[in-house]
Amino acid sequence: MSRSGEEVWKNSTEKINSELFTLTYGSVVAQLCSDYNNNYNLVNKQLDSMGYNIGIRLIEEFLAKTGAARCHTMKETAEIILKVGFKMFLNITPQVDNWSLDNRQFSLILNENPLADFVELPSDAKDLWYSQILCGVLRGALHMVQLDVSVWFVKDVLKGDDITELKLKLNKILKDEVPAGED
């Protein structure tokens, strides 16, 4: 029996004020930037791999709480990620858009982003994808359900874009195997 994101959020989620989360993440990104001497490409990479580590653990809670069944198409997968995954962990519901013709690639549009609530990027941080950790989380979580995907940001309101947009592309469906952790 699979449950909707709304149900899981309402009934079996312990909730906290998102600001502590926002500020903690902000502090981490700031620390990474100073650790890597403002080499933003390295910061993106590090955030992505931290996200991956989170994703491979997070999928377990997701499956346990939702009892979601196997998805048969990418459209179903997208629906579950948006309406259940994002809802139960971040309490937001992004939009899906821009499907590619072969239905293997789509855009996630974040109307709100709790990670970036109090954030203003310095003008020299053009290369930083502030919320890159989300890409890693999606990649890690989907990896654990045998989907090898690439996820990347194309737009971010922090950079002056009108929306925050991620692209998710299915590379291939993996055979059952245990992926190695990433450090």
């Binding site: 989620t13 312990e14 909730k15 906290i16 004020n17 989360f21 139960m88 309490n91 709100e112 609530d117």
Partner: peptide
């Protein structure tokens, strides 16, 4: 206030 899951944190 925006709330989110304690798991995320």
């Amino acid at each position: 206030k925006h709330e989110l899951s304690i798991s995320s944190l």
